[in-house]
Write a protein that binds this DNA or RNA. Structure first.
Lengths: 326, 326
DNA sequence: GAAGGATATGAAATCGATTTCAAGTGATCA
DNA sequence: TGATCACTTGAAATCGATTTCATATCCTTC
């Protein structure tokens, strides 16, 4: 493989001059520039980016940490991030944690070892005190999940509002025993949603019951399993506010299996507004999250991050989409 | 940030010895080893991987090129690849082409510029003659999509069989006017599926019609649109073999909209066996592809690729899953 | 015509590691 | 006792680029 030295030798010029041509420095005589370009083509030369990165001290690579890329919400998030990154000739490294603290640490280490210029966290597994240490090595920003106390740039949605308007909608539809089935247990996002849920219940004078409030539900199968659980309670709920359309879809499927009629006997509310929400029968009433936009915005903030820690918190709007499941 | 020199200075040893400790060379006295480890901890030292990679001449990074990561098939593929890569402490760079030749070339260039150790192609946009040039710089392997003439390691499925058993199933269910709606136009995978489809038709003495055979369908919306098209033909088909469950789902949704009863008046066959196939009402009869396995296998081949171009072609099994849509 | 600035180029240092080579020590064995 | 071998260490070269600094030339401009 040809190196810059080969090009220099072939043209009789110095490595410096070749480097200047590569980096489009001014102050290179036009004829030498052409000479170098010709030689590069002749030799099939491409600069070794590892050497460039080592010297320039940047990698043009961003890591995005997700729980699971096959989860549609996160794959959409990554899609929009990759598009922005690609436009700026940045690479995107995907890191799956499976919500494992050790794996999250392993990936946070990418910034310490200078393998990436920045990290976008879409979920948070370790305590902030632990993650904080890594901010010394480069920009870390939140997208989707967040920690208010962290003081890092964040792109998020008003999850309290999500919980609130979703639950309020269920109540307005006439359901009185509203359950809640959210995602990660130890998360600001989940806490805020549940807070919104509880606030709506309280405002309407409806009871909150511990056994109606579940967390750690993510998949279709989780939805199925939890619906069965709920139905077998001594006092089963008559509606559920869920943390994702997958969980909602699983619940609807299982409800049909059990002969529970939706929405008449049981109301189901999703979250995200994934394609599946429209396809299900009945369609899933859900909270629309602008997934593409938050991914795009997060990457834009990352790429314009100029060592000036501006710590902005961007909150994008979400809204209710009513379909047949409520 | 501490460098290896700082550790050397702190311990009074040479950079060589520190490097030996880092790389677990034998022949380092136990007490010096402890001394170095202590100093590394003290200084919060982590080796700069860029420097390591430059010197060791490998990046421990693999690029996977997909059309779109948000497509569930590809996100599952990437998920399984990332898991295998992560176990071996390799990184995965995701590259989305949107089926754009230029973008594919841009990403193929990653191997030329030594930014990745290898590339897994899950779709193919440029001609093999063009891609071939890049195999000089490192391993390129196919996963899912393929080109028989290329002679590179390939993990694929028997797409001819997929087309054949799918179409045969439709015919056995009594449908006689079977349409076909596949993915990429210029692709061995699509060609093979269509070949299987046509072979099945021929064997049963059923007609093939150009206007029943569509390509470039990927999304739910494509499914909806094409179903409407097909229904408005002078002679509409009474069943369709599709290239993905998303397309099938879109068709089922649109059929309901048009008042076409599935499976009685129209049969729909999917491909992939995505979660949505089970969730739809009716469930989608589909060809199950072992997505996780092909991704896993492809990454395993990549990671065990020892400059010995063994060019194996791995073909994993696929099978029919009968549900309500046929 | 001297000073100052813009243009053009190359030698050498640098980024931060690994690797090669040479050399030293101490134990083992013929 | 001297040769061989295993172990241990460091100086210097190396990976392949960029950057700094020094130097040279050619215009302007006063």
């Amino acid at each position: 493989m040809a190196t810059i030295k080969d090009v220099a030798d072939a043209t009789g010029l110095s490595r410096s001059t070749v480097s200047r041509v590569i980096n489009r420095h001014p102050y290179v005589a036009k004829e030498k520039k052409l000479l170098v370009e010709e030689a590069m083509k002749q030799l099939g030369y491409t600069p070794n980016s590892l050497a460039q990165r080592l010297r320039k001290r940047k990698t043009e690579t961003i890591a995005v940490i997700v729980p699971r890329i096959a989860n549609p919400f996160f794959s959409q998030l990554v899609e929009s991030m990759e598009m922005v990154a690609g436009e700026h000739n940045f690479q995107l490294v995907v890191c799956q944690t499976n919500n494992n603290k050790q794996r999250e640490l392993k990936y946070l280490n990418l910034i310490k070892t200078k393998q990436v210029d920045g990290i976008i966290l879409t979920s948070i597994d370790n305590d902030w005190e632990v993650i904080k240490e890594y901010t010394n090595y480069g920009p870390i920003i939140f997208c989707n999940e967040y920690d208010e106390n962290a003081g890092v740039p964040t792109v998020k949605l008003d999850q309290f509002k999500g919980g609130y308007i979703g639950t309020t909608h269920l109540i307005e539809r006439g359901y009185t025993k509203v359950a809640c089935c959210c995602g990660f247990f130890n998360s600001s996002l989940t806490d805020d949603r549940i807070h919104g849920y509880r606030t709506a219940l309280k405002e309407r004078g409806l009871p909150f019951r511990d056994e109606w409030c579940r967390t750690n539900a993510f998949s279709i199968d989780d939805g199925k399993r939890i619906l069965r659980d709920l139905m077998h309670l001594e006092e089963p709920p008559d509606a559920v506010f869920t943390g994702s359309d997958e969980v909602a879809a699983g619940m609807i499927k299982e409800a049909k299996q059990l002969g529970v009629v939706i929405p008449e006997e049981f109301g189901v509310l999703g979250f995200d507004d994934q394609p599946i929400a429209e396809l299900m029968e009945p369609g899933i009433t859900t909270i629309h999250q602008p997934v593409k936009e938050i991914g795009k915005k997060a990457m834009e903030i990352m790429l314009s991050y100029d060592s000036k820690p501006l710590n902005e918190i961007v909150e994008l709007p979400l809204h209710l989409v009513v379909r047949g499941s409520t």
